[in-house]
């Protein structure tokens, strides 16, 4: 998880003897077998997405009317062929690119924006908190699927509008978590101790509040990645996200659904990929949560 290090905001003196909080968390995480398997799966998926053109045995766009809906194990088509005779294996490998991006990117952007909103509301408190959080609640009131569909319907189909609508969907829950964690941290003695030692409001937020709240918010955000992937697939399935002929798992599931009686196993493959990816993210997030739960 080198993507994120909350202590990067303040210069940290390299500790020689005592391991830092995050290295302790990582060490605990590395002892968690389930989380490590999930981590390996995610790593494999990410590598697969990055090196897709080199790994994929065939061109994911090249169709062949003669070889439509071939079963798994057909020579030259290890995982069969889809309704237009394109190689399923290559399409699944290439599909990881868009699917992972649609899963991770909205959550990360929402993590940034939602944290700012939530921490500000939680730290300032009072009327500002009420106003901000009630506005957030308005968005939160809509079921996330409905909100995502409505937003990307209004913004028009396409990858960008899909990303934007998913980001908007994830800001409210992250902001709410950020607000509740900040409200808790704000009341702990070390914030008062920092005030008593002359720290300005900005320093307190930057050093003591962010240092303590970003971890829990981040863990929550990782658990949203799987939701985001499923929602993104749903949008593609409805024709609102990625457009054909781009390979994307949700879209593939959509276009193959007519073939479910002819080649059920081939048609289920994109769903299987979504399932594996989202469960891996969920398990890693669970592992991270319990690894971070260090009590003195």
């Amino acid at each position: 998880m080198s993507l994120f290090s909350p202590s990067a905001a303040v210069p940290v003196v390299p500790a020689e003897r005592s391991p830092g909080y995050w290295s302790l968390v990582l060490r605990r995480l590395s002892r968690d077998k389930v989380a490590m398997i999930a981590f390996v799966v995610i790593l494999a998926l990410v590598l697969m997405a990055i090196f897709a053109p080199y790994i994929a045995p065939a061109d994911p766009y090249k169709s062949s009317m003669l070889r439509r809906l071939r079963p798994i194990g057909t020579p030259g088509y290890p995982l069969g062929a889809d309704e237009l005779g394109r190689d399923m294996l290559s399409r699944l490998i290439h599909g990881a690119r868009l699917s992972l991006m649609m899963g991770i990117l909205p959550v990360f952007i929402a993590f940034g924006i939602g944290s700012v909103i939530g921490v500000a509301a939680g730290y300032i408190g009072g009327r500002f908190n009420a106003l901000t959080m009630r506005t957030v609640d308005v968005f939160y009131a809509f079921p996330s699927v409905l909100l995502a569909i409505a937003l990307s319907g209004a913004l028009g189909a396409g990858i960008f509008s899909g990303l934007l609508s998913l980001t908007i969907v994830f800001i409210p829950p992250i902001a709410r978590i950020a607000e509740s964690v900040t409200t808790q941290v704000r009341k702990i003695d070390y914030v008062e101790a920092a005030r008593a030692s002359g720290a300005s409001g900005f320093t307190i937020v930057r050093v003591h509040v962010l240092g303590n709240v970003l971890g829990p918010i981040f863990v929550y955000a990782t658990s949203l990645i799987s939701v985001s992937m499923i929602l993104a697939s749903g949008l593609s399935f409805l024709g609102l996200g990625v457009k054909p002929p781009e390979p994307e798992w949700g879209l593939m599931l959509n276009t193959l659904r007519n073939a479910i009686y002819v080649q059920p196993w081939v048609a289920a493959l994109p769903g299987l990929m979504i399932f594996i990816t989202s469960i891996a993210f969920n398990l890693l997030s669970d592992g991270l949560r319990s690894a971070m739960d260090i009590k003195a």
Partner: peptide, 10 residues
């Protein structure tokens, strides 16, 4: 002192 010291810094 457990509450008055910030847990994420040395």
């Amino acid at each position: 002192p457990m509450l008055a010291l910030d847990p994420v810094y040395t």
